[in-house]
Amino acid sequence: MSGDPIYTEMIIEYSRNPSNYGKIEDAHIKRHDSNPLCGDSIDLYLNIDDKKISDVKFDGKGCAICMACSSVLTEMIKGKSLEDVKKFEKDELLSELGLEHLIKTSPVRIKCALLSLKALKFGIYSYFADKMNDIESAGNLKEEAANLY
């Protein structure tokens, strides 16, 4: 195969052994999302303590790209403050796995890559609105999530 690689060692490895895979019982935030066209379907669980992501897990079914990106995303945000997570951008996630090219080369597969990020942004949007009464941040997050892909 030539061109921009998708199936790197790292992606295959994460898809075989995803990080932070599982459920958090009674999680503070639980968000489900799916890509209707390809059948990726995940649940993201978050616990928030002291305005930080104290724990995060995900489970569900998805392709290698979806599994790898969900794994890396959970690794990247664990322990981060909500303020940092609010500003977290898709390029940070994609570059971590060398998948920036997907934005241009594969409008279909970019959805697999960003599904968990979409779930994250939607998930904390409701937290900002309901628990922190930060309507402006919530509005921005919601808009960002809706326009992610």
Binding site: M1, G3, A64, I65, C66, C112
Partner: peptide, 13 residues
């Protein structure tokens, strides 16, 4: 256990 989307992407090449 390879997800069909991964199969399709690889053989599409």
């Amino acid at each position: 256990d390879v997800h069909p989307h991964d199969v399709a992407t690889i053989i599409d090449k």
